[in-house]
Design a protein around this nucleic acid. Structure first.
Lengths: 269, 269
DNA sequence: ATATGTGAAACCCTTCACAGCT
DNA sequence: AGCTGTGAAGGGTTTCACATAT
């Protein structure tokens, strides 16, 4: 439909598309692996395969960064590693703080990938006095009362929240007030932040639910597939209101969808 | 992200857009909270605010499920909870296996959100004989040699991989061969799977890198912002090849972008 | 009066296919 | 000959704005 022209007359190419930004780390990882094996150049085809995308997409992505390839040859691995790292801001040092050093927080702190590539754990913070002073991943846990001081003294602009859901918004507010402008949230809550603050969310149960959706669909289409639940069809499945659905998995079998086609029983049009 | 798009000319209009599917869990969580507070109905405006999206998007999303609202009134909370749960497949029981019970795997297993809402940890599996038999989150760890048997006996169709990167593809292959068709991957690797298998990826360091990109941009635009790294502008920044960039953060300051405008120095047109 | 449900417009992202450089 | 870089086409997603129902 040849989009009408909206043309941003502003300084062109101000923006690398968000979708491209989200893939740069993938390319970087693949390139780093090639670099370790001393591979000098790659074609878009090879690199795309390593990163799990198709080559046209990769070339388009790189075109937003500039022309870093050589026609007829491919891309210089070292050069691309450098350019992408720079574009992502990984040539500078990013001190981060992690708040909430429970099971998950501790695991994340121990996770190697954290420290590498430009990120440095400047502090671990927890609200439990019993945790304070105990070293996790070699870093002593500090008390939450010092959060503001820690953020300011270390010039922290990226914070990781791994607290329980109930504490997340409050911690977020304090981080933001102290100067943090990017937050990676592992707590299962929606955080509200002022304009100018970026939040990214990692949510285990959301990911599982999305998988379940597709899995259910597969089961409906392919009769032979495994993973069928053990639930026997329960008698009254017509209930609409009092579906418990919490705690343990609901037991209501619910009218199994037809062999394939179907649609919410209610409201046909 | 989404994966292996098995072209489906099949049952026509049955498709809920992927973007919508990815938001349903958010709505469900917000609705569950309302349900706990015994709120009977919500407007699209209120619910959208709670879920962190705008109301037009929410209404459009719900329109794919059917007409579950009442004009002039809003949506019945319990009813919507039920319908979304059903759509996501959460009214059935999904046994999952988790492979790789290290720091992260153990933290995930202990994570409450896992067990609730339709998911049940059927087994924890690890390759370390020393771990076998030890209970994690109340579930004894089993040895990886039994992976196939465990998957088959429990009718598992969803697997979670929390192994080191090096082991992930191999574990993935075994899971798939045993019948798993959905995988949630926490290992920092691209997994390749046959068509019909869905993979979703959770990658800590990718998320941080995306945040760093935006953070860098902010710093470039707003001169007063915090988080400035300590790097002094180094002399020769023209280097193209030997950028180390590994291990600790590279020290090369690299030509700082201009005060505001900026863009790859190379190739303007 | 008020809030949903939805065509249509606008926008963003991916894919195609080939011109252009090495 | 080979591979990048990119207009253009094609889908998908978001937003608008209002007809429609209670």
């Amino acid at each position: 439909m040849a989009t009408g022209r909206t043309h941003r007359p502003a300084t062109r190419s101000r923006g690398i598309p968000e979708a491209t930004v989200a893939r740069l780390p993938l390319y970087l990882r693949a390139l780093t692996a090639l670099s370790e094996r001393s591979v000098p150049t790659v074609s878009s085809e090879e690199l795309a395969a390593a990163a799990g995308v198709n080559s046209a997409k990769l070339r388009k992505d790189f075109s937003y960064l500039g022309s870093y390839g050589t026609r007829g040859v491919g891309y210089d691995v070292e050069y691309l590693v450098y350019q992408i790292s720079r574009e992502l801001g990984l040539t500078q040092d990013w001190p981060i703080v992690m708040v909430g050093i429970g099971n998950l927080g501790a695991a994340l702190a121990n996770y190697g990938g954290f420290a590498s590539r430009g990120f440095r754990v400047a502090a671990l913070i927890d609200a439990d006095p019993a945790m304070v002073g105990k070293p996790v991943a070699g870093i002593p846990v500090q008390f939450i009362d010092d959060l503001e001081k820690i953020v300011e003294e270390n010039g922290v602009s990226i914070g990781v929240i791994a607290t329980p859901a109930g504490a997340a918004q409050q911690v977020c507010d304090r981080l933001v007030a102290a100067g943090v402008t990017s937050i990676l949230n592992f707590a299962p809550t929606v955080l509200s932040v002022p304009d100018g603050v970026d939040v990214r969310k990692v949510d285990l149960s959301i990911e599982l639910q999305i998988l379940a959706f597709h899995e259910q669909r597969k089961a409906g289409e392919e009769p032979g597939a495994g993973g069928e639940a053990v639930l026997p069809p329960s008698p009254a499945a017509s209930a609409v209101a009092g579906a418990p659905l919490r705690g343990a998995a609901a037991t209501a079998a619910e009218e199994r969808k037809g062999p394939d086609g179907d649609m919410p029983a209610v409201m046909p049009a």
